[in-house]
Design a protein around this nucleic acid. Structure first.
Lengths: 244, 244
DNA sequence: CGCCGCGTTGATGGCAGTCAATTTCAGTGG
DNA sequence: CCACTGAAATTGACTGCCATCAACGCGGCG
């Protein structure tokens, strides 16, 4: 079902330049960078294609996802400016990546050439390592969010994570870069539940919504510990048994 | 290839030797390896401590986990022989690691010294990179399992993942290395639900239980696509969302 | 023997998925 | 400027799964 691979970078309306973007933290890789611009929903990296490139978001946002056998989509990473992706243990991509918004700019690097460059440049090797550690950290953070119990906690944690990764606006407003559907597939809950949780948080006075995608955090503590969000917070503490 | 002929270190508490274990895939790191043996539940790496070491499981099993604010434990990685862990983006460990069984053998490497060694040895740098990619892959796999809908699917996927990572016994029997509690905290469901799901799968003829921790896979296809496990599997095809 | 950790089974209430209808909004063209 | 259109977002009603509480069987161990 997947079309041709992306490495041609001549996609519809995708521009390719040899000049690296402004927010790329790995200056050493700039000589290999191929920068492309994608529109809303455009495929950056196809599930099932050969993993021949590494990528870095310059501006905009991208979603890494997997389509399950039952047709459901699971987003397994939200990529924001500065985030690297495309790291795989196998030679094949077991995920797809799409641009979230129009004008998303992504730098791609030939994996083979990047690794050759890293072989002769320990500093670059360390920076690549750091980038993979950060990808690991993002995934771990998402696992902790998805692993939460109630949908209210999941949505609350999601807002907090976005707030920590995105630049803040006035007060504590956060501009969510994705739709409710994307949030739903990121948290693996239904769209309706995401919407209900947001209005619930709004009614509780924890957040304020100015426009559908701008969240203002009123009560950060309530979001942080999901306890105060529980209807009947019966102090379910005795869960962890310290082993001697 | 997993012969644990290191039986000399069957000490009651944690013993430390300078001789690397037999299953270590990174021979180049052997010079830095400090091999220790842990008993059931012993802490290998403490949550909140400085992340000064990388580790590799030689034999046995270990669990990487996080304790939430509400006291719940979330297991974010199951480490089996050959698996590396301890990779962090920040200088502090945001997780803990414990040995699952008595006699779990783990090699530890000074991160500082390992990175210095990698600076002068591109081949080692590549192997470290590969190890982090595999950690990434494990985490991604777990996220896909935890993100499934029903508990039956989660438990089924867990069995399949263990089957693919553990050596098989007779027929298709898999010896689960962990307790029901560990499975529950890995899948973020309750222990009772794990138990119920297993007996359910047994009654459906999908698996057989010989002893509490030995699972024999009878119907692999039923485990793979969670569709046939749904109670009302009338037709779930309508969930396909047409991608623009 | 009593204790404790592990595992299983039962009963019950709450939360969330599903189906459905409605509203809002952005974009388009007349 | 406005009507039209489709996607995004919200809200409601209902069913069902699962977390929780509780009890019990089992095996190891002091």
């Amino acid at each position: 079902m997947k079309t041709a691979n992306v490495s041609t970078s001549t996609g519809p309306s995708d521009r390719t330049r040899e000049v690296p973007g402004p927010t790329n933290p790995l200056k050493i890789l700039d000589s290999l960078a191929v920068v492309s611009t994608y529109r809303h929903g455009k495929e950056i990296c196809g599930q099932g294609t050969l993993a021949e490139n590494w990528f870095c978001v310059i501006s905009g946002a991208a979603r890494r996802y997997v389509i399950r056998l039952d047709g459901r989509r699971q987003i397994i990473d939200l990529l924001l400016p500065g985030d690297f992706f495309g790291f795989t243990a196998s030679p094949v991509c077991d995920f797809g990546v799409e641009a979230v918004n129009d004008g998303t700019i992504v730098a791609s690097y030939s994996r083979r050439r990047a690794e050759l460059l890293a072989d002769s440049d320990p500093h670059l090797a360390r920076e690549i390592r750091q980038a993979t550690f950060e990808a690991l950290s993002r995934l771990q953070c998402q696992l902790l969010i998805v692993g939460r119990i109630t949908a209210l906690e999941k949505v609350g944690s999601f807002i907090l994570e976005m707030a920590s990764r995105l630049p803040r606006g006035h007060h504590n407003s956060v501009a969510l870069p994705v739709s409710r559907y994307d949030i739903a597939d990121y948290l693996s809950v239904s769209v309706e539940t995401v919407s209900r949780s947001l209005t619930d948080l709004k009614h509780r006075g924890v957040i304020k919504l100015s426009g559908t995608r701008t969240v203002e955090i009123i009560n950060k503590e309530a979001l942080e510990d999901g306890e105060s969000l529980a209807c009947n917070s019966t102090q379910a503490g005795t869960r962890y048994r310290a082993v001697a």
